[in-house]
Amino acid sequence: MDNNPKSDYHEYEHQPAAFTPSENLTDMATAERPHHRPPEHHSFYPQTPPPPPPPTRVAPPQDPIPNPPAPQSMVPQPVVKVLSPRGVEYVFMTIALVTGAIGLASALLAVVNGNYSFSVLYFPLALLLVSVPVFSWLFLRLKQAELLDPAARLDASKRRSTQFIQISSFVVCFFTLIGFLATIFAKLSGSYSGSIMKVILDVLVILVVAGGVLFYYWRDEHRLS
């Protein structure tokens, strides 16, 4: 056993070189960073004439192809979706319209059923007293703005609100009609004991209110298109 500590050192000295700076620098310059190759006129690289272009077939003329869209990650995406200033007013008007329609339908249902008492009418009255003035003011204000600037009718926030109103009122009318027919059939079979005339009046009230809203916004929407 060699106890000389230098022997290990000597042995290490004779290991094959694992790293040659000159070779590796060349590799890095040529292989790993091809785009950073110096221009051809640099003295370090020999000036060689460019190779002749390969023979190519002449392709027939094609229609111009549009540029491909940019990657999704490059397109700015809104992280917060906000309504337009007019859109906020349309949302306010939608809330007032839905509340007022509920109040109006409730008051009319009470009247057609012959209930005029305080306890029946006070809540629909409260709904009407708040929502009718608010809705009227917002409706006339927005209608005036649309007349002055027709482009305001195409506001996306406005259409979102009006489409919500249309869908809601359609659902109410749709299921009211189904309910009406179901009541008629129940009456024919004797399983419904109430007055069919009152049911007709109730259905008419709901259809006049919800159907009126649906008709107005349906016509308004289709006049746009």
């Binding site: 339908a105 409730s106 249902l109 008492s117 189904i178 009406f180 419904y192 109430g194 049911v199 109730d202």
Partner: peptide
Amino acid sequence: TSNDFSASSLAQNVVARGVGAGTN
């Protein structure tokens, strides 16, 4: 006169009958 008439219950019931959930 006082009764337990509720217009909102009546309207809900008319629409609810359309989805098969209403009562008389």
